[in-house]
Design a protein around this nucleic acid. Sequence first.
RNA 1: GGCCCCGUCGUCUAGCCCGGUCUAGGACACCAGGUUUUCAUCCUGGUAACACGGGUUCAAAUCCCGUCGGGGUCACCA
Length: 538
Amino acid sequence: MADSTVVTRFAPSPTGYLHVGGARTALFNWAYARRHGGRFILRIEDTDAARSTDESTKKILEDLRWLGLNWDEGPEVGGPSGPYFQSQRGHLYKQYLEQLAAIGRAYRCFKTAEELTAAKAKAKTEGRAYKYDPAESLNLSKAQTDQLIAAGKPFVWRFRMPDADVTVNDLVLGDVTIKAAELEDFVIFKSDGGPTFHFANVVDDATMKVTHVLRAQEHLMNTPKHVAMFDALGIKRPSYAHMPLIFNSDGSKMSKRDKAKVARAAAKERKLAAAPGVDDAAFRAFLDKKSDAVEIALAVAGVLNVILPEIDVHDFRRSGYLPSVILNYLALLGWSPGNDLERFDLDFLAKNFDLERIGKSNARFDRAKLLAFNTEAIGKLTPDEFFKLWREHLAAFHPVYLQKFDDARLRILAEAYRPRSRTLDEPSINGMFFVVADGDVQYDPKAVEKVLKKENGAGLAMLRELAAVLTAISDWNGPALHAALEAFAQRAGKGMGDIAQPLRVAVSGSTVSPPIQDTLALLGKNSTLARINRALTL
RNA sequence: GGCCCCGUCGUCUAGCCCGGUCUAGGACACCAGGUUUUCAUCCUGGUAACACGGGUUCAAAUCCCGUCGGGGUCACCA
């Protein structure tokens, strides 16, 4: 039964990429709307002009689309309640502010930030909890107010909270009551003439006729403010559902700074003196924890070859996770369908998602489990599906492959890696030796020592014999190579592993590659022999 | 610190609302074997939890209270 009255929204502020926590919020709102045949709105909360960027908006839209979370109303698709950028809805906020002012529920406050800070400090030294005292502002006469305005004194507008306890009927947590004494008159219009988050949020939810607000639990203490405004405006409150938070596996908050932390630790441990493309001052600031710039973290990670923790949806995309897997895993963080069911897709959520089964306790993000889900999902892909997805991944993150390989060869490479890939990025990284010139293969010293030089160069001796065997092969393809190598192994009384490893190190530089006959076939006879000859000189 | 929310294996959770079927189920991780041409898979088995203390009851993971622990929030950020 379609309940067309349900309207949900996802309202990110465009200050960076789409965070996984935000993605889950979007997912739940999307799923709830779908489940009830309602509408899902995307709204950009860019009231903070200093931090919001168009670039970020673009990225967030792109990530949502990549995930498959399509919105019925919002940027780029329009809708009856537009515009969908708060920066373009100023007239509405003004209008509702006037309405509140007219009924005495909004008033000017001329207190400066310094005065407020001082009052807070005083309360602290006196050991009492600070609470904004509205008396002075409320007692200002019309004449006094006019005079202050005429004098150009800056002011904010505050909302007059009711002198009563406020109960929020949360669909996940149940009734939550906050005592009147805990609530204070908060700012709804800043001195720069723009609305604060609280006000814009409420006016928009009201004018967009949002019926259900599904958001993270960190907003719980904002909700009394929000419902009080709905009440003052005489507008029916939407239903609220606050969901548990998502943390790192160590219990810390998942934040962009995690990337800086990991990169900084690596830079210090390896005594990195500079990072490419980063000027010295900025780099030093980064090391001194004065800056957590993501660009610097990425540059450091690049030279030191360390993997930064994934935080944003885009990070997981770059790491080669499938959108369906991210969605599935995220849904499990805070929701469960019961019946020991764990693998499901968007379609399932659109049919089965409900608020009753949202959990109340915070969850930790477990990358190992995400990886396991991804491994399984990739294992189920057909060769064609894998090829298509990997090709897209390469186009976005490793275009060098598309320059070096035509689709026919790329398809063969894809098939060599498909059964041994847990992410779309693993083959991209592990297969680098396929796309570099023969003379540029990087030899891993440990692999060379262990496989080629150990025991008086037994591996090298083996390689010399193999070079002769391979040179004699005219029919250069997987099955033929396999047959030839196996025959040689028989004659030499060796196991396949004894011959494969020296060859693998010689042609790839490492101990890891697809099955050796496939690797050699893909590389071609010339490259194979050239690399073996080079390895012989190591 | 005030206020608010939460508390089942290492992690995510099922079970809790409607006490008995729970000697607490699943998944991931971990451990031990096995398959394998490296890697990645794959197969088999195993370890592992109701935070603690009271109470209610014939019976409590399930209901009540307290303690402890974790988290959120206290901006002219959102």
